[in-house]
């Protein structure tokens, strides 16, 4: 399979949110899952004074946006398989297009655009309230291993 389609399975949000809540760092950053399925994973994170990179502007640190994008991409890699896979980030490249507007929620959508037996290739786009202009984009490669006890 070289492309995921829009018709892939979706996963219950409560279950997906419970998965995110089980990741201590995702919980520490208050990440919320907005959509979760084989067609894409959407997550968001509220602006928080503790996440700021430059107090003069109040702009959130790139590292916090990276953490959100990495989590969404990893979750996407996980749910690119049914049953879900165990995954780890191999590489992630982030392009910062512009500063996220202080006070606004950062949202992102991760899509799996190619998957092999062992690797998922994920693209992520992040926005604030202005959905027409991305804040950042990322591409990443993620390892795929079967869940312990699960059949391929």
């Amino acid at each position: 399979m070289s492309e995921t389609t829009e018709t892939g399975p979706t996963f219950p949000l409560s279950q997906a949110q419970a998965f995110i809540e089980a990741l201590p760092h995702a919980r520490a950053l208050g990440m919320r899952i907005e959509a979760c399925g084989a067609a894409g994973v959407e997550m968001s994170m509220a602006w928080d004074a503790r996440f700021v990179g430059d107090p003069e502007t109040g702009v959130i640190h790139g590292g916090a946006v990276s953490a959100l994008m990495d989590t969404a991409a990893g979750t996407m890699a996980m749910f690119s398989r049914d049953p879900p896979a165990v995954t780890a980030t191999l590489g992630l490249r982030i392009d910062y297009m512009r500063s996220a507007t202080p006070g606004e929620r950062v949202r992102c959508r991760a899509v799996c655009f190619h998957r092999t037996r062992s690797v998922a290739f994920i693209r992520v786009t992040a926005w604030d309230d202005d959905a027409a202009r991305p804040v950042a984009t990322a591409t990443g490669s993620f390892t795929l291993d079967p869940l312990p006890g699960a059949r391929r």
Binding site: H61, G63, S66
Partner: peptide, 24 residues
């Protein structure tokens, strides 16, 4: 600190925490 953990089963540092540490 425990809040830096990504996957509690392994357990390993969150890739996002590592990325932020490198960027800072």
């Amino acid at each position: 600190q425990p809040s830096l953990i990504g996957n509690p089963l392994i357990p390993a540092l969150h890739g996002g925490a590592t990325a932020a540490f490198l960027e800072v």
